[in-house]
C-alpha cells in the first residue's frame, strides 16, 4: 500500500497531465457547448494540478482562481446568452480531408523530430531531469509567491505594467464591442 502511494506521489504530474488531456479531448469532442465548457474546466483544474506538482504553488492557485473562478463562468454566461440559437450545428466537425491529412502528417513528422531521442534512442543521453539543486537558492518550494513576486516586480516590471495597460484596453474594448447600439 505504501509502495502504491509512493508511486502515485512520484507520478503525480503524469496523472494530472493525462487527466488534462482527457478533459481537453472531451472538450473538443462533445456536441453541446455546455459540456465543452465543463471539459474545459476539468482540463484547467488538472493543469493547475500539474503546476502544483511542479512546485509552482502560487501559479497553481492563480490558475484555479483565474480559470475556474473567472473565465469558465464568463464562458458559461455567454453560452447561456448565445446557445438558444435556432441554427444548430449541422455537423460538429469540419474535416477538410486533403489539408487535414497533410497537416496531420506534418504534425506527426514534427512530433517524431522532437521526440525521436525519447522514443527510439536506446543510446540517448541521460534524461533531462528537473534540477532541484539549482532552484535551491530561490527556495521555490517554501516561498514560491515571494520568489515569483521578486521576479515579477523587480526583473519584469515593465512587461507587468504593459500587461496592465493591455487589460485596461481589453476592458474598454469588450464594453464597446458588446454594448447595444442605442446611443
Amino acid at each position: 500500500m505504501e509502495h502504491l502511494f509512493e508511486t502515485i506521489g512520484r507520478n503525480m504530474f503524469a496523472i494530472f497531465g493525462v487527466m488534462a488531456l482527457c478533459g481537453a479531448a472531451f472538450m473538443i469532442a462533445s456536441r453541446s457547448a455546455v459540456h465543452s465548457v465543463l471539459g474545459f474546466l476539468f482540463a484547467m483544474l488538472c493543469v493547475a494540478g500539474c503546476f502544483l506538482s511542479m512546485e509552482a504553488e502560487f501559479l497553481g492557485m492563480a490558475q484555479i482562481l483565474v480559470y475556474a473562478g473567472g473565465i469558465v463562468v464568463l464562458f458559461l454566461f455567454v453560452v447561456m446568452l448565445v446557445e438558444m440559437s435556432k441554427k444548430k450545428e449541422k455537423e460538429v466537425f469540419q474535416l477538410q480531408s486533403r489539408y487535414a491529412v497533410a497537416a496531420v502528417l506534418i504534425g506527426a513528422a514534427a512530433f517524431v523530430g522532437v521526440f525521436r531521442k525519447v522514443i527510439f534512442g536506446a543510446s540517448s543521453p541521460e534524461a533531462l531531469v528537473l534540477r532541484p539543486e539549482l532552484a535551491q537558492g530561490l527556495d521555490v518550494a517554501h516561498q514560491n509567491a515571494q520568489a515569483v513576486s521578486r521576479g515579477l516586480f523587480a526583473d519584469y516590471l515593465l512587461p507587468f505594467e504593459i500587461l496592465s495597460v493591455i487589460l485596461l484596453v481589453a476592458l474598454v474594448g469588450a464594453v464597446v464591442l458588446a454594448k447595444t447600439e442605442r446611443v
Binding site: F13, L21, C50, S53, M54, F115, L128, V129, L130
Partner: peptide, 10 residues
C-alpha cells in the same frame, strides 16, 4: 522529481 520529457510530451 518530474522528468522534463514527460512535461514536454504532455
Amino acid at each position: 522529481m518530474v522528468n522534463l520529457n514527460v512535461v514536454l510530451l504532455i
